[in-house]
Nucleic acid binder design. Structure first.
Length: 496
RNA sequence: GGUCCUGUGGCCGAGCGGCUAGGCAGAGCUCUGCAAAAGCUUCUACAGCGGUUCGAAUCCGCUCGGGACCUCCA
């Protein structure tokens, strides 16, 4: 098996993953700003890192996964004079800011559960780390990398670069270009350089979220929280930092500058960025009005949706592409994913009940045995190749073929040997549930009732009462199920 | 305008110098009361034009199309 390789945005190439501390991984992912519902585009990013988290653990790493909640400091609009997002919603909805935060944090957690995301090890919030952030601002001023101006504090990019750093290296920006493109924004007069960014903002009296600081009442800049919280829980240097592609600049660029400025060392070893979810070729975003909320998806109520899709269908759909590619959302693609997912799911339900039966003098089918073993290895190789879940799923379908053949009595377990059989059985479950994080969703289902229906079916069929037989099939179909009428037994499956 | 990514069969989507990815849809076969399920077989590809190479979907150039970022964004 190969080593895990990760595409590092910093070097722009795939690198062999070597954690700073052998056997341990520190991973930080930018969480949501909880001022509104998370949409499907957000979910794609969290999915990428959920799978990474699962996979790292599965191959034996002890992982500390930190994902923050941004509950202050993220401004609305282009300028630094914009309103705080939480504060704005609080005014609109006439709620206490913390009510807004709580409401959307709760929603976020429900959504994560719906899509079967594992909880991070630590989920810190920006407002819970005000002391750390104020200390960091003080520290940066002392180091000469930040300056106060009219109650706000700005990070001094020129000073930072003079000290031998390179602001812009992550996103490939050139300082001069950035300067030429600087827009006319309010508050620029306070800055020594238009590119300097706020690490502490003075709050206007009517601003509802503000804290006392050595520079007066104010609130921290958006980029600062991630720097402080990642350093606090993962150390001044840690392994993986993830987030959506659209956070690369300026957010992650600023994080590097703050981290390096504070500690003198490169804060992150591997930067990972997941690509955007698009709708008709355009980035899904709230401002374009083409974003779906999870609730709209499950009920199928959004105008762009032809039907409802379950969370696992969506999870599977997203996993069929590689995280660094854009993924286009469409009804046709979702429908295809639904069928594929249910087929795999039926295999997952069946594989657990397969049992090995030794048969003497049965010749081993070497070709099949080898193909199974090859597919299992290929699954790991695919995951190791920068989390190529699309390719990993292709291997799952190869394995599914054999699961089905055994289940249908078309292949005897003994023909592939006990070892390969056991491996097929255990790995299929691990791949499906533990690594890809798929699961059986609760549809209307009652096992003992189903078994009763199936025994009636069997009886009617034996008596050749085909009208009754067809009737039972219709009941199943009405519940998204289908009867599998096989030579050796009768069973049911989710309709694909 | 600057920086970068991208264009694969009916649809989605991997691959990124030689080896049929895969899923969905279509066609045929086996099984079946008829079906369904499952297995088997099978049809459609690499935007266009040049170049490099023994060999290119994969590298290079140009043209055309799509997209992202450039202080809201996952």
């Amino acid at each position: 098996m190969q080593n895990l390789k990760i595409y590092n945005s910093l070097s722009r190439q795939k690198e062999v993953f070597e954690p700073l501390i052998p056997g341990h991984v520190g991973m930080y992912v930018c969480g949501p700003t909880v001022y509104n519902f998370v949409h499907l585009g957000n979910i794609r990013t969290f999915l990428t890192f959920d799978v990474l988290y699962r996979y790292l653990q599965n191959i034996g790493y002890k992982v500390r996964y930190v994902r923050n909640i941004t509950d202050v400091g993220h401004l609305v609009g282009d300028g630094d004079e914009g309103e705080d997002k939480i504060g704005k919603m609080a005014k609109l909805e006439q709620l206490e800011p913390m009510e807004i935060v709580q409401r959307y944090t709760n929603d976020f957690h429900q959504v994560l559960e719906l899509f079967n995301f594992l909880s991070p090890s630590i989920e810190p919030s920006a407002t819970g780390h005000m002391v750390e952030q104020i200390e960091a601002v003080k520290d940066l001023i002392e180091k000469g990398l930040a300056y106060e101006s009219n109650g706000s504090v700005y990070f001094d990019i020129n000073k930072y670069n003079e000290a031998g750093n390179n602001y812009g290296k992550l996103s490939g920006r050139i300082l001069e270009d950035l300067l030429n493109e600087t827009r006319e924004l309010d508050g620029q007069a306070e800055k020594r350089n238009p590119l300097d960014f706020a690490i502490w903002k003075k709050a206007a009296p009517e601003h509802i979220m503000q804290w006392p600081s050595p520079w007066g009442m104010g609130f921290p800049g958006w980029h600062l929280e991630c720097t402080c919280m990642s350093a606090k829980y993962l150390g001044k240097q840690f392994d993986i930092h993830g987030g959506g592609m659209d956070l690369k600049f300026p957010h992650h660029e600023c994080e590097i500058a703050q981290g390096k400025g504070l500690t003198g060392v490169e804060p992150v070893k591997y930067w990972m960025h997941s690509n955007m979810l698009t709708v008709n070729g355009q980035k899904m975003s709230k401002s374009l009005g083409n974003s779906f909320l999870p609730a709209e998806l499950i009920t199928g109520t959004h105008p762009l949706l032809e039907q409802a899709y379950s969370p696992m269908t969506v999870r599977f759909f997203m996993l069929q592409s590689q995280y660094r590619s854009t993924l286009d959302f469409s009804n046709d693609a979702l429908k295809a994913a639904q069928k594929g997912y249910r087929r795999l799911l039926n295999g997952f339900r069946n594989v657990k009940n397969l049992e090995f039966e030794a048969i003497e003098n049965l010749e081993i089918d070497t070709k099949k045995k080898e193909e199974i073993e090859k597919a299992i290895l290929a699954f790991y190789d695919s995951m190791n190749d920068d989390l190529n879940t699309a390719m990993a799923i292709a291997q799952m379908f190869t394995l599914l073929k054999y699961v089905n053949m055994i289940y249908m009595n078309q292949l005897l377990p003994a023909a592939i040997g006990q070892e390969t059989f056991d491996d097929l059985k255990s790995k299929f479950v691990i791949f499906f549930a533990d690594i890809l994080g798929l699961k059986e969703e609760e549809m209307t289902k009652n096992d003992s009732m189903l078994q009763g229906m199936l025994s009636l079916y069997r009886e009617y069929k034996a008596n050749q009462q085909y009208d009754k037989v067809d009737q039972i099939r219709a009941y199943f179909k009405a519940n998204s199920m289908t009867i599998k009428d096989m030579k050796h037994k009768i069973d049911w499956a989710w309709e694909e």
